[in-house]
Amino acid sequence: MSVFTRRVRGFRLIDVVALGLLVLLIMSVYLAKTMASRERAQIARVEREISSETARIRLLEAEVAHLEQPSRIERLSTAYLEMAPVTVDQETTPDTLAIVALPKVSRP
């Protein structure tokens, strides 16, 4: 009895196998499409989030640049911290730090 003539509960085995394969293929395509669309939606959501975060980062960078304007920093540091540009007598080098650390001696 060949595979083409063998019957299972009145149905040819070859037909049953073919139908099973067909259903498997349909299911696999359906699953692939469904999973893919879910993944795609997730990817799109993440991309939207990235885009939104990138825009926020750029806005914050611009805000930081705006707040760190040299003229603004200068105005605030002068007004609230009484700071001023460094003068020559406020500068030193690592080599002369030891001299700066010495106690001041009154000269005649």
């Binding site: 083409f4 070859i14 073919a18 394969l21 067909l22 293929l25 696999s28 395509v29 692939a32 499409k33 893919a36 669309s37 993944e39 795609r40 990817i43």
Partner: peptide, 27 residues
């Protein structure tokens, strides 16, 4: 009949592969 079914199955598999590829790699 077997020959025709085999051809159809082949075509369907090709379509399935194409559809899956389009769904997965359309990004």
């Amino acid at each position: 009949i077997f020959f025709v079914m085999a051809l159809f199955s082949l075509g369907f598999v090709a379509l399935a592969i194409g559809a899956t590829q389009a769904a997965l790699f359309a990004d």
